[in-house]
Nucleic acid binder design. Structure first.
Lengths: 118, 118
DNA sequence: ATTGGGTGCAACCAGATAGTTGCACAAAGC
DNA sequence: GCTTTGTGCAACTATCTGGTTGCACCCAAT
């Protein structure tokens, strides 16, 4: 079970945005996308920060539902979970669509307000 | 000219993610989407924060390319700019697609690694 | 000309965040 | 058994951030 699931907001878009707002966390998810299942210690070797920093970042990603870790012997392997990102992608796209619709309306209204130019 | 354009990174996805990570800023863009062109003072009347806080948030949104303001007499009216959000929507969608592709590959590889189950 | 609403700037504050180090503990390997 | 290797927990620090207040300035309207 992931942190987000434990808190019952797998689809929490805000958390995903916060998680992806940090460049180190974006690099982290890139690495996870490239390598599949990776341990925090292994990730720390590829980034210029300590293992503890990585662990904290993974906790944020986990809370956002973007990542989850499973224990294998003495190590914990982290992997991506696409659901929360999918939900966020839908959210951003629909927001962009609303903006476009809104701006189209504004433009139309502006044209109506200047009948001599129409 | 907007802040983001001044700095030459209209497509800066990181800035957009940072901007949208804050709930007050999300409410702000919602209000702007609903009302078109609004002044910072007017926005401050609808949110439980001071005008100065709104101005700072608008500066962040402007730097991300999500918003721009134009001066009309003694007031400054802010409005949405869809370009940066469109770019970010494309980024998130393509990231989600890459994740899905990646996880499909991992699954396929896992199945190949267990030939007795195939 | 003076008054008033809107903006811009600066200082300041509290809490969050990204990072560190140090150490204790658990699981593998010799 | 002992040693190694990876994890987990805690304390601590510095910087960032979201918020405030106070004040000066500009523009418009009476």
């Amino acid at each position: 079970m992931t942190g987000a699931e434990r808190r019952g907001d797998v689809a929490g878009v805000g958390g995903v945005l916060v998680a992806l707002a940090d460049p180190t966390r974006r690099r982290l998810v890139d690495l996870l996308a490239a390598e599949g299942e990776v341990t925090a210690t292994a990730l720390a070797e590829r980034l210029p920060v300590s293992r503890q920093a990585i662990v904290k970042h993974l906790a944020v990603l986990d809370a956002a539902g973007l990542v989850s870790g499973r224990r294998v012997g003495r190590e914990v392997r982290y992997a991506l979970r696409p659901a929360a990102l999918d939900a966020t992608a839908r959210w951003v796209v629909s927001l962009a669509a609303r903006w476009d619709r809104r701006l189209a309306t504004v433009k139309r209204v502006a044209e109506l307000a200047r009948p001599d130019e129409g």
